[in-house]
Design a protein around this nucleic acid. Sequence first.
RNA 1: GCCCGGGUGGCGGAACGGUAGACGCGGAGGCCUCAAAAGCCUCUGCCCUUCGGGGCGUGUGGGUUCGAGUCCCACCCCGGGCACCA
Length: 817
Amino acid sequence: MADHRFDPEQIEPRWQQVWADEQTWHVSNEDAADADSSYVLEMLPYPSGEPHIGHLKNYTIGDAVAHFHRRTGRRVLHPMGYDAFGLPAENHAIKTGQHPRESTNASIAQFQEQFRRWGVSIDWDREFGTHEPRYYRWTQWIFLKLFDAGLAYRKDAAVIWCPVDQTVLANEQVIEGRCERCGSEVEVKQLEQWFFRITDYAERLLTDLDTIRWPEHVKTMQRNWIGRSEGAEVTFHCEELGIDYPVFTTRPDTLFGATFFVMSPEHPDVLRLAEGTPHFEAVRDYVNHAASETTEERSAVERQKTGVPLGRTVVNPVNGERLPMYVADYVLMEYGTGAIMAVPGHDERDFAFAQAYGLEVRRVIEGGDGDLPYVGDGPLTNSHPDFDGLPNREALVRIVEWLDREGRGHSTINYRLRDWLLSRQRYWGCPIPVVYCETHGLVPVPEEDLPVELPDVSDYKPKGRSPLAAAEDWVNTTCPRCGGPALRETDTMDTFVDSSWYFLRYCDPDNDAGPFDRDAVAAWMPVDQYIGGVEHAILHLLYARFFCKALTDLGHLDVQEPFARLFTQGMITRDGAKMSKSKGNVVSPRDIVDAYGADTARCYILFIGPPDQDADWNDQGVEGMHRFLSRLWRLCAEGADTLRDDPVPLDLGADDARIVRKAHWAIDKVTNDLGGGRFTFNTAIAAIMELINELTEAKRGAASDGAVRFALSTAASLLFPFAPHTSADAYSMLTGGRVWEVPWPEADPALLEADTFELVVQVNGKVRDRVQVSASASQEELVAMARELPNVQAHVDGRVIVKEIFVPGKLVNFVVR
RNA sequence: GCCCGGGUGGCGGAACGGUAGACGCGGAGGCCUCAAAAGCCUCUGCCCUUCGGGGCGUGUGGGUUCGAGUCCCACCCCGGGCACCA
């Protein structure tokens, strides 16, 4: 017999070559017209260095899904690209002087090489990097469309600034008061910046979550981030200055309990209000101090409430009382109106402030154990004869109606979501296509002049303004409107802009006339299955949803929700900790693939545990997977040599039946694990292992060659989505066929039922015996037989059987007393 | 503090309310070999046992049920998200 040694180094490149030569995974846009087309997408990688183990997991999961879809008869779009703009490449450039384009392209080459070695089934005809002018030309085009529609705008605002990266950040990029990228504490600065008006879409972004099949926790995170609150806007009037100050409150029912009024230190009127009062200096010092603090300091838990009086009052519109005004940093400028009515009797924060400054605490709702603050529901009191005694929820409605009639307030909805700050004072990003003309001011670059190409510079170091400002030849330009001198915008776009529409471009990557053809996109979109890390639960996934809605509203698209189903993968750790160079616990996919082959790496990563959970890497586990693939391949290779190529016999002997039934059981199990969106690859692979365990020489017994061949080729076929090379090789040896061209096997329901089963016999719910019985035996026969079992008799022991529970195909339970 | 996940052998993990621990790792013993590697076979939750079997076991305490890892209530621990959002 020939020496059958499993050699991935020989097998894997051979099949990769076939797939590359034949462009097996290419689909045309005509294929999308197929009713059963499918779009399977993994989040595009940020190319830095070479792929890490998280990439391997992401693309292995996606590839398994794509293969399963193909073999169940669908045309599958499964593309790849690179999120190529961004800070790491730029920081590398600052350190080494190497152009970010060079390091990025070098990294992309590594990713391409690895993806090919992993055998990922990608349609390479649709590949691009977001840093290529042929792509970002259309990023700029989209920006201009949003600008024309008023959805991109400039405004002067208090924005978050990272002092290390020397750029502003979006709210979403601040984690616990620190920069998401570099971890340094962020500051607040008053700057004019570019924003996308995502807040216009807050309500739709919230309600449309109900239309998509995403993990519930991801939807919850988005809901929390959008932060919808129903309440009322109520106007308080400052008589001394003759100015109205509206506030947002979710509790207008407590209006009669307001005893003071607080403004945020960032509120633009604070200094003006204090001017001319004895408190001016104190207010100015307080405001300056607040500005010097980091957001982390300001939002520290258990922080003592502080503030100073403004020396002014406002009038409470419901009762005409004059409330003293304060400035205090527990009021945030970015939520509501930057000013609040304070109700210390029914709000914990207001109560803490009132305690610290000796302010009146008034009860206007009955309830609780007598202590204030009381934040629960109850009847109104101490308010107004019209409302006292009413349940507070009802009073709330009546009070708002009254305010509305009087023109002093109205019901409204507030969102926590802020507009998306998209400009960055950095080099390696998509230029914002506008110029500033001396006579015309801000002028968008005309569509036909796109792309505004990113110029080369010699110094990438940020100095509080974009490094692009130094590229004088580029910055100095002419106004498209008048031809006069103009300056280019030197800020670049947040890289999340680039990744907010890339999945649309894959549908029509070579389009020269627009970002995509509406019909081409309509044929593939939405993405049927999107797969990526949960770290993008808010940022990318919210922005991409916003882009689709905005582009759809503007008539360029017909996609309300880009990702119909989402799967979020867990992290791979080692020794219980996140892999990092500093901990020295990094597992490189390259090393694993070098040592064991891609299929072992892929299968191990799927077998390690449920893919949505975190999992800990184990070197010995990898070896176990390699042993399994090796055993499967060897059994198939030997089988191809030694087993006659017979059909499965019509009359199955006992050993044949056992093997053939196990094969059908495995088909059923793997199919269910892959379908239905559960993606329990670990149990699917375990089922194939069980099948193989039944097929070892020692266990085959008197099974016929035809039955063994069938079972082996079934195992090879089921393995394909996980280990495509090994599967293709084993399947071709056994059958001469190409596994990716044959339909997914179907389980025969008749063969899923065995003719015998193990009946479990219990007494009072405890297992007392197990008996192999015929599946055709009647309930009466089985119960009678079970009752006579010696061990059952021993446990019944003269007591009375009061009940007999019979579960067909499973068990008998005697209840005795 | 609020909102999500999750607590099962030495380890990763299986288990439509119906045999807890599938599958794999690790461990023990054996076969093959001059030897080793590789491969193959058997055993492997804990305790007791006269080897028939018995008891205990899924974070803790209750409950529902003929029967609970699974459902309900209360609590403890771990991980994640949000966090002065008026």
